[in-house]
Lab assay of single mutants.
Amino acid sequence: ETIMEVNLLKGPKGLGFSIAGGIGNQHIPGDNSIYITKIIEGGAAQKDGRLQIGDRLLAVNNTNLQDVRHEEAVASLKNTSDMVYLKVAKP
């Protein structure tokens, strides 16, 4: 597993990826991690090219996303300014 830091500039459609996982909404049984499950065509993440489906999202800005509820992860992604710092684990 490789840890990678990505600074992503939000586009008109936001960050351009979808997530799944978290406490109460496990993407993988027994694993509370938050995973990237979709990269949106023409979105910021696709244009940047570094994020991939299956990457594990560890942090957004200063918010640690390990062992959080799905709703908390979504809220932390929404409550960001235009430049967003992401910390991901690549499988």
Rank of each mutant, 00 (worst) to 15 (best):
E1V: 07
E1A: 05
T2L: 11
T2V: 10
I3N: 12
I3D: 08
M4G: 05
M4C: 09
M4I: 12
E5S: 09
V6D: 01
V6G: 02
N7K: 11
N7E: 15
L8R: 00
L8A: 02
L8P: 00
L9Y: 08
L9D: 08
L9V: 13
L9A: 14
L9C: 08
K10Q: 03
K10S: 05
K10I: 14
K10H: 03
G11P: 11
G11V: 05
P12V: 05
P12F: 03
K13A: 02
K13E: 13
K13Y: 05
G14A: 04
G14H: 04
G14M: 03
L15A: 04
L15D: 01
L15R: 01
F17H: 01
F17D: 00
F17V: 09
S18R: 15
I19K: 00
I19D: 00
A20Y: 07
A20Q: 09
G21P: 03
G21V: 02
G22T: 02
G22F: 02
I23T: 11
I23S: 13
G24N: 14
G24S: 13
G24W: 07
G24E: 11
N25Y: 11
Q26W: 06
H27C: 05
P29A: 12
G30Y: 05
N32K: 05
S33Y: 07
S33I: 02
I34P: 02
I34R: 00
I34K: 02
Y35G: 00
Y35Q: 03
Y35M: 07
T37F: 08
T37N: 14
K38S: 15
I39F: 08
I40D: 12
I40M: 11
E41Y: 07
E41Q: 15
G42C: 07
G42T: 07
G43Y: 06
G43H: 05
A44Y: 07
A44T: 14
A44K: 11
A45C: 15
Q46N: 15
Q46P: 01
D48T: 04
D48A: 07
R50G: 12
R50M: 09
L51S: 01
L51H: 00
Q52W: 03
Q52M: 14
Q52N: 13
Q52P: 00
I53V: 11
D55M: 10
D55P: 00
R56T: 12
R56V: 15
R56L: 07
L58K: 09
L58M: 15
A59N: 12
A59L: 09
A59P: 00
A59T: 11
V60M: 09
V60H: 02
V60I: 13
V60R: 00
N61H: 04
N61F: 02
N61W: 02
N61L: 02
N62Q: 04
N62G: 13
T63V: 15
T63H: 15
T63W: 05
N64L: 13
Q66G: 13
Q66R: 07
D67N: 13
D67S: 15
D67G: 13
D67E: 11
V68W: 06
V68F: 09
R69T: 07
R69G: 13
H70I: 14
H70E: 14
H70G: 12
H70L: 06
E71W: 10
E71S: 15
E71I: 11
E71H: 03
E71M: 08
E72Y: 12
A73S: 04
A73H: 00
V74D: 12
S76W: 13
L77C: 04
L77F: 11
L77R: 00
K78D: 13
N79Y: 09
N79F: 09
N79L: 14
N79C: 12
N79V: 14
N79S: 15
T80W: 06
T80N: 15
S81P: 07
D82T: 04
D82K: 09
D82S: 12
D82G: 09
M83G: 09
M83Y: 06
M83P: 11
M83Q: 14
V84F: 04
V84Y: 08
V84I: 13
V84Q: 03
Y85C: 14
L86C: 03
L86N: 00
L86Y: 00
L86V: 06
L86H: 00
K87R: 06
K87L: 03
V88L: 11
V88R: 01
A89C: 14
A89E: 08
K90E: 07
K90I: 08
K90S: 06
K90F: 02
P91K: 03
P91C: 04
